[in-house]
Nucleic acid binder design. Structure first.
Lengths: 266, 266
DNA sequence: CTCAAAGTCTCAATATATGAAACTTGGTTT
DNA sequence: AAACCAAGTTTCATATATTGAGACTTTGAG
């Protein structure tokens, strides 16, 4: 329950999230229909956020979208609080070497947050970009990060998962996921076996600090038309040192040790 | 003005901006030294923002950076509230055709906000450059957008400019800028004559709606080592239709489906 | 023209934010 | 070790901003 409970600011951010989650310009009344706040309260929040450029308002259509100030702020976040700046040269090299789509991801609030990406020369028709979020339980990078978290940190996140069945291969219960995570811990890497999108497979490698803490993950993605799991597994000797180098770069830059802390405070 | 005055939410956002502006992990006391807020107030803001993942806190170093939630939210903003999604194919084509660095920018709060970019070498790099802000009075895209704003909108922004002299060519007073803007209005496009960075020149074209409203701008950037202003001017016949097509795509972005009741379908 | 829906404003009650001061913690000096 | 200092954290009475029922205004449909 990260949303409410943090006073006025927390409530305003609930509204921001709500607008962002629509994925399209949204009217005031649409927000109101599904808002925990009464009309005038929601109205003032939306006004304040618009004043502050956290939302932008299209007067012609009377619709709201997330605002440009977020793009400005996110640039700072991306450069200061993610692995992207230090991972960049290694992602470039990895992309060149394997010639497939490469992802860099981190965990945020129990979800996979894609931080950076390199497209294959022949790009897969697949929707992912920096800033995009995905489920942790059915993506390669997600499972690999979960597998190497501390037990209690993993527990918190696992219970948050929806276990929605995206494809016939999606793991749809906690027990199956935990078995998979144990396998990943044994191997040191993991796969996405068309669990999120049909025809899309990947091999993923965690980025671990010296102390063994999960910093993020990288993955190489392809299609069943182009290769198979065995083919991807052959890339492990390329992925492993790339992940190690990113971890080392993070260490040298004194990357903040990630607080996958106990959100279950109060 | 825009900062404070919007209640608790506005004040919290001042703190967020402050952290982002540091450009590096920052300690509580550093924030306090330059904060309008007394210690406990600032402390609570920082706590709240951290709870909300708008800031992230490194417990070891006791430092704050902008949080990952911003990256998530900015993705939504980038896709819904900027020209980037509809400009993408045209930027790709432009980049291929001219073989130089291409920028897409919009105005935000009197500043140039870079929305997307194409390098000659590797294509899509999301927030590496997107999200960066620049001055309006001494960049090609900035001047071109100012030139086609309504008089009073331009006035507001012009008075906000710092007129800092980045290079010997920088326009350092309002009168010189206004003369330049008049020229740009006449020509329909503008240049950056090493006004922001020595050796860097560009040609920029506004993206105007049918009604003549400024939506954004595109530019092609190069160096004095590689070409000159006359060389860049030859690209105008390529830039103009690109800007026009982006404007048209933006126009078509109207969702004609929304106003009709969806209940009627079921 | 009439009516309903959407959007905006008002104001007293109330919850919330505020910040001076006191306290705790961690590290440095004597 | 003890004393000191700076950074960070907590408390609590007070002031202030938030809240939301309701009323008002605008918009657009029929």
């Amino acid at each position: 329950m990260a949303g409410t409970g943090d006073g006025t600011v927390g409530k305003a951010l609930v509204v921001l999230d709500q607008v962002a989650s629509f994925g399209r310009p949204v009217r005031f009344s649409e927000l109101l229909d599904d808002s925990p706040f009464p009309k005038p309260t929601l109205y003032r929040f939306v006004q304040t956020l618009t004043n502050q450029h956290m939302l932008s308002y299209d007067a012609d259509r009377q619709t709201y979208t997330p605002g440009l100030r977020l793009v400005r702020l996110a640039h700072a976040a991306w450069e200061q609080a993610t692995l992207a700046p230090m991972a960049r040269p290694f992602l470039d090299a990895l992309s060149r070497e394997v010639g497939e789509t490469v992802h860099l991801a981190q965990l945020d609030a129990g979800q996979v947050l894609y931080i950076d990406k390199r497209n294959a020369a022949d790009p897969i028709k697949m929707y992912s970009q920096a800033g995009k979020v995905g489920p942790a339980y059915c993506t390669g990078v997600g499972k690999v990060m979960l597998a190497f978290l501390s037990d209690d940190a993993a527990d918190v996140i696992i219970t948050q998962q929806s276990f929605h069945k995206f494809t016939p291969q999606t793991l749809t219960d906690e027990a199956a996921l935990r078995r998979e995570l144990a396998d990943i811990r044994t191997n040191g890497y993991g796969f996405d076996r068309e669990e999120h999108e049909p025809g899309i497979i990947c091999v993923a490698m965690p980025i671990l600090s010296e102390a063994g803490r999960v910093l993020g993950a990288i993955s190489v993605t392809s299609t069943t038309a182009r290769t198979n799991l065995a083919g991807l597994e052959q890339l492990v000797p390329v992925l492993r040192p790339a992940a190690a180098k990113i971890a080392q770069a993070a260490q040298n830059w004194s990357f903040p040790d990630f607080n996958t802390n106990e959100e279950a405070r109060m």
